[in-house]
Design a protein around this nucleic acid. Sequence first.
DNA 1: TACCCCAAGTTGTACTCTGCAACCAGCGAG
DNA 2: CTCGCTGGTTGCAGAGTACAACTTGGGGTA
Lengths: 157, 157
Amino acid sequence: MAAAEMPDDTADTAVETVQREMTAFARRARASAGRMHPELSLVSYTLLGHLEETDGCRATDLAAHYALDKSTVSRQVSALERAGLVERRPDPDDQRVQVLHLTEAGRRILAQVTESRRAAFRERLAGWPPEDLVRFAAYLERYNAWRGGPLGGDEDR
Amino acid sequence: MAAAEMPDDTADTAVETVQREMTAFARRARASAGRMHPELSLVSYTLLGHLEETDGCRATDLAAHYALDKSTVSRQVSALERAGLVERRPDPDDQRVQVLHLTEAGRRILAQVTESRRAAFRERLAGWPPEDLVRFAAYLERYNAWRGGPLGGDEDR
DNA sequence: TACCCCAAGTTGTACTCTGCAACCAGCGAG
DNA sequence: CTCGCTGGTTGCAGAGTACAACTTGGGGTA
């Protein structure tokens, strides 16, 4: 289907649908995330996941990535540390900085939650033809890679 | 591309990508929604939108649709009513029920916020070929239409 | 070196959103 | 009429968040 064959209306409707569905998803994810893993909120999980990818990052980085206030990150990290999931190490190069690392327990819990989330997603996506799955994933990546506007143009990734 | 040509790994990776990207979106939407329209939270906006579609629904319906506690809905509706955006009318058939309706002001505000959100999405999706847009929208609808699991199997839509 | 400004993080405070539990009020069946 | 169920509200508590003020350390510049 070429662009020329498609009326503007169709694209407009698609934009609205994307908007509506993405919003619906956001609402649901928020509502259900807490219930799935009471001991690891969506934010904590996300922060933990980020730490696994970029082991040894700073609290400020997290704040920038997730458009959170540094105080929020500070408290979240405190909670995670209290729970024994992350470690704060002083940065030898800059005494102001705390380098954050996952602990073994943190890694374990994260893997566990990731697995259960993955299972849920897999179940949810079970009926999808693989090629649709791949395309859907690509669209989402493309959507989230976008920068520069009021609707999520943060520093993530 | 037929399913038979695609290794399981590819589909698995796609599932993980969908999971990761959807989660990322949820986090961002949450972070940015409040900043865009301070006077209309994401939940309020969603409820208002729902009321526009199904004018004259009950608070319990909203709670069921959005997997929210009825107390939460009650308070949200109270706030919206205080703001003059919705009206509670007694149901003549059942005195327990309050039928919710958008007011003129509510309709106006909703249209305004919708427009600004739409503009943001449109900007974000500006570079997309229309046929990709349509396919993306279809995937999202399909994803959100799913029911039955711990990851959002609520009654919505 | 001394001073100044900026950056990283913490803490105090306040507000919103949320769920749970307890409660009230109206409906309908026996 | 009484009992149980449903729709809704309210009290309470906890999580998440932002903003502002503050502390500490780094890096220039005079």
